[in-house]
Design a protein around this nucleic acid. Sequence first.
DNA 1: GCCAACGTTGGC
DNA 2: GCCAACGTTGGC
Length: 169
Amino acid sequence: MKNNDTDRGYWLFKSEPSAFSIEELAASDNQTAEWDGVRNYQARNRLRDSIRSGDGVLFYHSNIKNPAIVGLASVTREGYPDHTALDPLSDHYDPRSSEESPTWYMVDIQYLAHLPRPLTREDLRSHPVLSEMDVLKKGNRLSIQPVTRKQWEAVLDVSGIADPLSGGK
DNA sequence: GCCAACGTTGGC
DNA sequence: GCCAACGTTGGC
C-alpha cells in the first residue's frame, strides 16, 4: 500500500552498527534489507500493525561512542513474519514461533540517504523540536520508535537536505 | 497474579 | 567498563 505525504508515518530504527549499519544497508541488493531479529513485543506490534509501506525511517546508530541519526530510509514492505525466528541456525531463532502462528514480524526498508553529518544526541538535545524525541528519553530501549512529522522535517532542515520522500510534490 | 532474579540495552 | 533502566521468566 502506498501512502501520501499527509498520512505517511515516520519512525526511528535503532541499530548497533556492529550488527547492521547504514553502510551495509546502502550496500545491500536494491539497497534494501529485511529488518529482522526484533524480539520485543512493543516493537513487534509496531512492525506488524502500524508501520506502512512508504513510511520514513530515521536510521540511528546505537551503542557506540557517538550515537547518532546517520541516515534516511523508507519502508518498502509492510509487516510480515520474521523467518529468522523459524530457523534453528539463526541467532534469532525462537522455538515458540511457528509458521502457522508467527510470534515475530519484520519489515523491509530501503536506503535513501546518509545525512551530510550525523546528528548526535547533543545535536538533538540542543534543538527545540528534536529535543522531544523519544530516543533521548532516559531508559528508552525500544528499537523502533515513532517520530513526528515535525521531527522528521526538523532532521531534514538541520541537515540542509530536501525530503527524499516528497519527490518534488 | 505477584515479584525477585536475571539478562539485555545502551548512554556515559 | 559501569550501571541504571527495562523486559522477561518462573517460583510460589
